[in-house]
Design a protein around this nucleic acid. Structure first.
Lengths: 112, 112
DNA sequence: TATAAATATAACTATACGGTAATATAGTTA
DNA sequence: TAACTATATTACCGTATAGTTATATTTATA
């Protein structure tokens, strides 16, 4: 995969998926949700974000199939429906750690 | 990982990494490079992008440690230095395929 | 039916970002 | 040294996007 020339359309879809993950607030929402269910108010409280903003982010991720939603009375209850999100974050996180370690080692020999 | 509350700073670093991958042109450059080395001119030719644009994208990815660069005479030769990039793209690609398959199945019963 | 609560949407602003054209900077060769 | 080549950088433009405020919508309740 990724070897057999992806079409412009395919590249755009992949880029769009990455774009959704390219915002700290959305990552915080996803981290807050974790493997649980939460209604919008709970997410707002936990992330200390604005209500409208959180709602908009959740809508965007709902449309992309990253989260799912069900209504229960007045509440809209969201959950992460795409577990690969966490996998992606883990890969990036590990890579960043490695990278910092390398840089640290590279600087280790420099006299202060 | 991703469970133990990431700091705002950590979230921003992760988001920035995803942001670099959130552009079709940059993905095309990475796909073009693949596992080989190429100079800027070759990348420009292969991607049919503008010289300045390709150079700028490569610089951004160089700074982020996604690609590495070495000079050889007049040429600047780049290569992908972060293999996890391909892993990330594969995960996204697979997920998108699954997602489309589900949607297709969901529509299968609808009469045309 | 009127009120209240939870969520979504619309309108707006400020900012970030990608693409391009023009120019600068190396490095090469005549 | 002068002309040339490959790459990088700058300045600019248009657009996309995150956040906010205000409002709409939906559902529950008095």
């Amino acid at each position: 995969m990724m070897n057999e020339e992806l079409s412009e359309e395919a590249l755009e879809m992949i880029a769009n998926r990455f774009r959704l993950l390219s915002d700290p607030m959305r990552l915080r929402i996803l981290q807050t949700l974790g493997t649980d269910e939460m209604n919008v108010g709970e997410v707002v409280a936990a992330t200390k974000g604005g209500q409208a903003n959180v709602s908009k982010h959740l809508s965007a991720m709902l449309e992309a199939g990253i989260v799912s939603r069900r209504k229960e009375g007045l509440n809209a209850i969201y959950r992460v429906s795409d577990e690969t999100i966490f996998e992606l974050c883990d890969v990036v996180c590990s890579r960043l750690k490695e990278q910092f370690k390398s840089r640290q080692n590279a600087l280790a020999g420099i006299s202060t």
